[in-house]
Design a protein around this nucleic acid. Sequence first.
DNA 1: GTGACTATGATTAGCTA
DNA 2: CTAGCTAATCATAGTCA
Lengths: 164, 164
Amino acid sequence: MTRRKMKLTFIVNNSSRKTTYKKRKRGLLKKAHEIFTLSEINAGAIIYSPYDPTPEAWPSVEGMNQVITTFRNLPEIDQQNNVVNQQEFVQQRITKADKLLLKKKKDNMEVNLTEDMYLFLRIGQDLNDLGYLVDQYLNSLNRRIQILEGGSDVEICESLQTGN
Amino acid sequence: MTRRKMKLTFIVNNSSRKTTYKKRKRGLLKKAHEIFTLSEINAGAIIYSPYDPTPEAWPSVEGMNQVITTFRNLPEIDQQNNVVNQQEFVQQRITKADKLLLKKKKDNMEVNLTEDMYLFLRIGQDLNDLGYLVDQYLNSLNRRIQILEGGSDVEICESLQTGN
DNA sequence: GTGACTATGATTAGCTA
DNA sequence: CTAGCTAATCATAGTCA
């Protein structure tokens, strides 16, 4: 004690490393919460550690639900252009998977929702990014199926349930 | 000064809010770097702020490439079970989109790579999550196309390029 | 706007129970 | 392991240049 001033290198001692990690994680998440409160940025953090069985994430469920709600309300703002239709498609697909997921792993809900958050954040932030291209790919698949079988796109959404 | 002890609420004043945000963001990223150095956790953070033209992210490109490399080497570790085949499929798909993306937006590479990082982290960490279900959905679409047209799955990957 | 300064509050390493 | 404690270091709000 009293002589702290530790060097900033990997802590070899296992128990020390875990203790330090847990203390500092607390501080880090607190800082993250503060900066979020003070300036209303849109942010997310996730920590995979060997000490926690589930990934630690910030923000927790409340902030995340806000992001999800915002995303889900997007299509209602502007129903006209193609970009919004893309969003609707993605939303529909994710909502579907989300329901199955929650049904499957009730005991691990917070983690899954947090992981979903990144998907929502990413899609909502910039439709010109990788996610957009993937969605275009999905749409191209859908179009091909529609052409091949001459059916409606309602069928496509249902295929998730029979997907495995 | 000297009487700090500010309240933890949204800072109304625009310039103050921006200054505080920038200062605290520095501190936050420093803390994140420290905890990462001390305990070698697997972590990522991303901040969307109205002040920065591009999202601020940690870790930066180096740490992220490490994660991506790790993920891309996964299929070589175990080629046998179905889970790995899922990974290969996802990897193939993402690599494809990634190339198109980098070709399209060279000036914004760091942001895109960071966004990709979360996708890799998420998929690599837990195949039983939402991403896995989405991939099953994709596979089900692929199977349907294969059944409908009796073709190979090579064609499917190419459809990304004609998707728009 | 940015950078430096500094008094003060906040964080935390090492310890104890 | 978990929860306090405290001394020491660190982060930063307000300020000035």
